[in-house]
């Protein structure tokens, strides 16, 4: 076992060497998590490099990209605070892309009202929180709901910003990308909440108001009322681009090409197409998302090799 893993780690090193010497200083045996960690670090370095050169509106655009990670980080801290976890431990787990200066202070506050008044009010996310936060909401179950509501608010805000502030080809491309992101979330929330006791009102609150699915009120309403997967399939068959997703996945997640894979593939296609337009800010978005997908792919492949599951190794998404 040790031999084979050393074998493939050496191999991985050479194969990925064009990616930069990001694995150069690792002496011990390479593990999947180390690769993933290093790849993420590389991504963040790239992102920060571009960001340091950016002027308005690109700088604002890139800020918007970081907001989604901020949402995750804030919720992570809040969850940790509710459960009285060690602050340093949680901070280590935060995504560096969503880092902001006041993030560590979040864990000091114990009262959620003061949390909002003292910390969140100064962050760009304050306006998203404003819409959903009430003190009673913050227990374990609701953290996920809050996460999704925040994300919905964020997507809508980003969407508005793109249409209002960005020059012509960018806004079109971003509209496509964000609409799909919203639709993806909508479908996922609907599928994943099938077994939960969320009411349709709560679901409606989480579903973004942009995107193809949201533009049709009837579909949106039906989505929130769904009771099983079959109905969702029937519903989706009337929506053009997403028709094919459900043909392949007979039961979600079980077949070789799952719904998630279809989503990723479609998203990557959109991102690839974003590169075809020149002089747009959306390339940055496409670059970041493609990079993330690449990290996932590399992680997946190394995981397959490490776990000796080579027959599934080709299940990654490649569009370029």
């Amino acid at each position: 076992m040790a031999d084979t893993s050393r074998g493939w780690s050496a191999d991985t090193r050479t194969r990925l060497s064009h990616y930069g010497n990001f694995l150069a200083d690792i002496n011990q045996t390479l593990s999947t998590s180390v690769i993933e960690q290093k790849l993420n670090k590389k991504l963040i370095e790239d992102f920060n490099y571009i960001k340091s050169q950016a002027t308005y509106p690109l700088s604002k655009f890139m800020d918007y990209i970081t907001y989604s990670y901020m949402i995750d980080n804030i919720l992570l801290i809040i969850t940790g605070t509710i459960h009285n976890r060690d602050k340093g431990e949680i901070l280590k787990k935060c995504n560096p892309l969503g880092w902001f200066d006041t993030l560590p202070t979040l864990s000091i506050t114990t009262d959620l009202n003061s949390l909002y008044e003292t910390v969140l009010i100064d962050t760009p996310l304050a306006k998203y929180f404003h819409n959903c936060l009430s003190i009673d909401d913050l227990d374990d179950l609701n953290i996920e709901i809050i996460r999704n509501i925040l994300y919905k608010e964020y997507l809508e805000d980003f969407y508005k910003f793109c249409l209002a502030e960005l020059p012509n080809p960018t806004d079109e491309i971003m509209e496509r990308l964000l609409s799909f992101e919203a639709d993806k979330r909508t479908i996922n929330i609907c599928i994943n909440s099938l077994d939960t006791d969320l009411s349709s009102d709560e679901k409606l609150k989480m579903l973004p108001s942009i995107g193809l699915l949201a533009s049709n009120d009837a579909i949106k309403y039906q989505l929130s009322e769904l009771s099983d997967l079959e109905n969702l399939k029937i519903l989706m068959s009337s929506v053009g681009p997403y028709k094919d997703f459900f043909n392949d996945s007979t039961s979600a997640g079980a077949t070789s090409k799952s719904l998630e894979d279809s989503f990723y593939e479609y998203e990557m296609n959109l991102n690839r197409n974003a590169f075809t337009q020149q002089f747009t800010y959306s390339t940055i978005w496409a670059f970041i998302k493609s990079k993330e997908q690449e990290i996932r792919n590399i992680t997946w492949i190394s995981e397959c090799i490490a776990q000796n599951q080579k027959d599934k190794i080709n299940n990654y998404i490649s569009v370029y």
Binding site: E144, I145, R147, N148, Y151, K184, R185, N188, I189, I191, N192, S193, M206, A252, G253, S258, L259, E260, F263
Partner: peptide, 8 residues
């Protein structure tokens, strides 16, 4: 994973 990956 309500937003994504819930089934997995």
């Amino acid at each position: 994973g309500l937003g994504r990956g819930g089934q997995q």
